[in-house]
Design a protein around this nucleic acid. Structure first.
Lengths: 90, 90
DNA sequence: TAAGATTTGTGCGTATGTATT
DNA sequence: TAATACATACGCACAAATCTT
């Protein structure tokens, strides 16, 4: 199913994209240590600018859902037992 | 003296700008809870794009040197005793 | 009350450098 | 050599909140 951005609501596009990826992670659609869609992929999939896709990825990193390997890609992080720095939410 | 960016070295411009502000903070030139130069000011002062100025500010935030109040400005954070989340460096 | 300036937040487009495959 | 992907940097624009006049 193709996602769509809501430009009217209060939630910024990059957060909407991040939320979608979070759902994919928590549902298991995106497994641990597997790459999430690239910036280009997100750009095409959502019809947004690269910066927006970048913000989404950065947001996920800030939330601790993923980790980025420079010049390689961004991967799903294991939030279950690895380390204890997992910030749950609010 | 007017600062200048070194575009040749390995240190990206936004980090050079951030480092300069860190020096101002640690020297006391920028006091706690006082605003650091705005993004526009940094843009003019260093002759860089706003994106670069924003990165510098974000970097300072990531390092725990400042905090940003939306639509207000970015201020020097008290890293001495307030809270214990101060990440010293590496 | 209103207008204007200031500042941050967000978005889009593009280019270059570097590393990996 | 080429495609892919990330990091960084440049440009521009508008919105929202704040502050000043």
């Amino acid at each position: 199913m193709s996602p769509s951005i809501d430009y009217e609501g209060p939630t910024p596009p990059y957060q909407q994209i991040a939320a979608e990826i979070v759902r994919d992670i928590e549902s298991g659609a995106l497994a641990v240590d597997r790459p999430i869609p690239s910036e280009s992929a997100l750009t095409r999939k959502w019809g947004v600018a690269r910066d927006t896709a970048r913000r989404a990825v950065r947001h996920l990193r800030d939330l601790g859902y993923v980790y980025t390997v420079p010049q390689r890609g961004t991967y799903v992080r294991d939030r279950s037992t690895e380390g204890g720095e997992g910030q749950d939410d609010a």
